[in-house]
Simulated scan of single mutants.
Amino acid sequence: MVIVVVAAVVGVLALLGGLVVLLNANNRLFASPSTSASIEPSRTAGAEPSETPTETPSETPTETSDETPTAAPSEEENEALFTATIRQRNDLKNENMADLLRIGRAMCKALDEGHGLIEVATSSADDLGAEKSGYVAGAAIVSLCPRHRSKIPS
């Protein structure tokens, strides 16, 4: 039974991890150097051309991002994301959002205190069931305490 619960929680967290990757795919900023190394023959009077790399300014346009870095989301925005994520599950739509938000914050606090992901993700299994508890943990990590995103398996 314990193995099934752990597998369900890890599966839900992996699903949320994939969602995080998809949501953040457009937020990556790319920078490219303004110069590039090119191989051009070196021309000196009376000497044979040589194939030595020289640093030259790039003549082709560099790829830049139109996106600018944004400030970290506010607590209200994080709570709205958490609520929206929770409401995507039919079996959690009718749950009390204030209670789920409290549970999510408690899960983040437990992670801050060094508790393990599986322990935190199953901490509300008695009240919600293992799968829902894992989903709430994933939603909390993604929205309320993104500093712990690295703990979600990919």
Rank of each mutant, 00 (worst) to 15 (best):
A72N: 05
L16N: 07
S133M: 07
S58K: 14
S50G: 13
L144S: 00
D127T: 12
E113V: 01
L101N: 10
A84R: 14
M107Q: 15
N90E: 13
E59P: 03
A25T: 05
D66Q: 07
A84V: 05
L144D: 00
K151G: 04
D99G: 02
E95A: 13
D91P: 02
T44G: 05
A98P: 00
A125F: 05
E51H: 06
T44E: 11
H148A: 06
N94A: 13
N27S: 13
T52W: 02
I141H: 01
G18R: 14
M1C: 09
S133V: 08
E59D: 07
A25W: 06
D126H: 13
P73T: 15
A139V: 05
T52N: 08
T56C: 04
L101H: 09
L101S: 11
G134D: 08
E63L: 15
T122I: 06
V10A: 03
L13S: 05
G138V: 03
L19E: 10
D126F: 14
T44N: 06
V142R: 08
A121K: 01
C108I: 15
S36G: 10
A80D: 12
E113A: 10
F82K: 00
S154A: 07
E131K: 07
V20P: 01
T70F: 05
A71E: 15
G46Q: 10
R105W: 01
G138T: 04
E131G: 04
P41I: 02
L101W: 07
S123L: 09
Q88M: 13
P53L: 14
E67W: 04
L81R: 12
V21T: 09
A14Y: 04
P53Y: 11
N24F: 10
G114R: 13
E119Q: 10
E119G: 09
L117E: 00
T56F: 05
T85I: 01
S36F: 02
P69Q: 06
L22D: 10
E131Q: 07
L15E: 12
P53M: 14
K132D: 15
Q88A: 09
R149E: 09
G114H: 11
A84F: 04
A125N: 11
A125K: 12
S124W: 03
N78M: 12
G116K: 13
L19S: 12
S65F: 07
L81H: 06
D126C: 03
T60V: 13
A7I: 03
L23Q: 08
R149S: 08
M97S: 03
T52Y: 04
T62S: 15
I152W: 01
L19H: 09
T56S: 07
K132E: 15
A130G: 04
V9N: 03
Y135C: 00
P61F: 13
N96K: 07
F30L: 09
D66C: 02
H115K: 14
S32D: 12
E51V: 05
A110Q: 13
T54K: 15
L144W: 00
N24A: 14
V6G: 01
